[in-house]
């Protein structure tokens, strides 16, 4: 089974989670070694400095980290353009593509803006037009997410880091209403959840993610490998769906 991890980061967090190893972050080389140990072929990576320090500096650190590693694709973090921090948006997106960036992230709470059209319209319309995925760590901000998708129903959004304490009643309405919304499974550890989702919606909108290095690689690898769905569906979730989404990204 071939795994393409859509939720992993490199770099050292500002505040290591309590109880985690002395070195809770990893370099690109260390990530690749851990992927080899686990049996993961490729990963879509962000840099933790994008969230903990500054999106622009983090984006550059990410570009440096993945340069020369063809098993690693990148995520950059966006900002609202009104403060002119990204410069010309089309040039910024071109630089991202040249750096191996295939998807984007947004941290509205940390970067102090609202995930709304007034703030992000110019950026998100470009993402939607180019079918560039936006990966969002959902947390408890479901109201904001519902509002965002109401404004940008064509946006490709990957809901990541789902709270393990039950999220189906939050995300299923979005799956049913918006055809380009997908679910990443690192936090979706509900017993029977993969089978129920695939039974109701098919396998095309669920993506394997590990949450490494904050989480172990093996948890959802084992859960997916032995989910009671077809081998074809497992492979789609493990890697095929992300291959397809990234293959659709336009210039």
């Amino acid at each position: 089974m071939r795994f393409f991890d859509c939720n992993t980061y490199v770099g050292l967090p500002m505040n290591p989670p309590p109880g985690q190893p002395a070195r809770p972050g990893v370099s690109a080389q260390e990530l690749l070694a851990a992927m080899d140990r686990a049996g993961i072929e490729k990963a879509l990576v962000w840099h933790v400095a994008q969230r903990d320090y500054d999106p622009l500096a983090g984006n550059e650190l990410l570009a440096e980290a993945i340069a020369g590693h063809d098993r690693l694709a990148g995520c950059w973090t966006l900002l609202p353009p009104q403060c002119r921090e990204l410069g010309d948006l089309d040039e910024w997106l071109a630089r991202a593509a040249a750096a191996g960036v295939r998807a984007f992230r947004a941290f509205g709470q940390e970067n102090r803006y609202l995930l709304r059209g007034e703030a992000l319209g110019d950026v998100l319309s470009r993402l939607a037009a180019g079918r560039r995925p936006l990966i969002l760590s959902v947390g408890k901000e479901w109201q904001a997410l519902y509002d965002l998708l109401g404004e940008f129903p064509e946006l490709t959004v990957i809901l990541a880091d789902l709270d393990c304490w039950g999220t189906d009643r939050y995300f299923r309405p979005l799956i049913e209403r918006y055809p380009n919304v997908c679910v990443e499974i690192s936090g979706y550890i509900l017993d029977g959840g993969i089978e129920a989702f695939v039974g109701d919606y098919g396998a095309g909108r669920m993506l394997f993610g590990s949450g490494f290095p904050a989480a172990y690689h093996g948890g959802m690898m084992l859960a997916l490998a032995h989910a009671e769905i077809s081998e074809q569906d497992k492979q789609a979730i493990a890697a095929g769906n992300l291959d397809r989404l990234l293959g659709e990204v336009g210039p």
Partner: peptide, 17 residues
């Protein structure tokens, strides 16, 4: 696992990792 909350394979896989 808190079953039926969490898939045992997730916890087992974490321990194996």
């Amino acid at each position: 696992t808190d079953l039926p909350w969490f898939d045992p394979h997730h916890g087992i896989g974490a321990i194996l990792s």
